[in-house]
Design a protein around this nucleic acid. Structure first.
Lengths: 198, 198
DNA sequence: ACCAATTTAGCACGATCGTTCGTTCTTTTG
DNA sequence: CAAAAGAACGAACGATCGTGCTAAATTGGT
């Protein structure tokens, strides 16, 4: 492995850590360079622009998310167990991925709500894709009879994301100890009609 | 009314507008001064520090929120109607208050999730207070038989806020036309056990 | 061990940030 | 109308931002 690729990986690891703490605007070059023990320009040469660095960080965070949250589901029982597993890992994925802050994706939302740019584009696509995953899982749970046949999967996915988003808010910003319990109770209530078969 | 107080009000009106568009970190002095047709320093003299300007803007936004969302509930029928009215006005309050952006409170959440400072303190208190209002309304709806007697009002308030937060995300960041419908369907599902009396 | 290529440091730039200061203009008061 | 008080201006500050350059150091291949 070339030296450049190695330090680039080091930078990205530190960058996603920083993004989980202070968002993507807090992803400034000088503090990041200090973190990895480099000069600002030396670090800069790896990406060519700040936007490229942000994009690369977003990409790296996506890989982390995939391997931490989605991939382990492959070995879980299809239907509701798999859905519940994804949700549970989704709740705690920043910690499980070794990040000391909160979910960098949610943190990035506010910083790109106005204006355009490829970062915003990429982030909305990530959210849409993952919501598609949830919808598929919900549809599968329906077919297994774990959710009522009348379930609106799009609405279900939206409300599941609402619960996760609220957890991000309650745990990160409000610092409420009950946040995790609230998120779990919400999931239970959302899927309250489990096994409605007689 | 003194001249100073008048321009101060003008500044705050522009500031809360700006905060609804670009958050509280986008609340920079120079652009804000240009907006109201003043010099940066002339504007600055009214507050003495950026933090004081942010606090004053937060206070002004709170007044707007109170008069737009909470106060009209006084004339509504107690119980679920009042709760539904609050929720509906809550969904559209930035537009109804004349703001062209999104809810400035949600926008401010991400910008102060780390660190301390009086702004963060104030904002968490605002959220806690309003959630207390929702809990009281839910309890009242319970007493009126509009919600099941077994309702956990704290959990209910959390999930209602989750729906509102998700609407903020879906409408603002994701720009989905179905966001409002999702929010309303979620409310209906959350209060699905209306009038359970035989 | 040497050479070529890659990687990092060093320095400086224009811009913008919040902040301060002294001055000038406008409003309020006696 | 004159004097005191308040409000806004204009310029400048130190700091930090992202971004270019060029030169030195380090790496990997032969």
């Amino acid at each position: 492995m070339a030296k450049g690729a190695r330090t680039r990986a080091t930078i990205l690891r530190a960058a996603v850590e920083t993004a989980s703490l202070g968002g993507f605007v807090g992803l400034n070059l000088q503090p990041l360079a200090d973190r990895v023990g480099m000069t600002k320009s030396g670090l800069y040469a790896h990406f060519g622009s700040k936007e490229a660095l942000q994009l690369a960080t977003l990409e790296y965070a996506t890989e982390l998310f995939q391997s931490t949250v989605v991939m382990p589901a492959k070995t879980e029982a299809a239907g509701l167990p798999r859905l519940a597993g994804i949700y549970e890992r989704w709740l705690g994925w920043p910690a499980n991925a070794g990040l000391s802050g909160q979910c960098p994706f949610f943190a990035a939302v506010v910083e790109f709500d106005d204006g355009e740019g490829p970062l915003r584009e990429r982030l909305t696509r990530l959210f849409r894709d993952f919501r598609g995953v949830i919808e598929q899982l919900a549809a599968s749970a329906m077919r297994h009879g774990h959710l009522p046949g009348s379930t609106d999967v799009a609405q279900f996915a939206h409300e599941l994301l609402a619960l996760r988003y609220a957890h991000h808010w309650a745990a990160g910003f409000m610092r409420e100890p009950a946040a995790l319990q609230r998120a779990r109770t919400g999931f239970a209530r959302l899927t309250a009609s489990v096994d409605q078969r007689p």
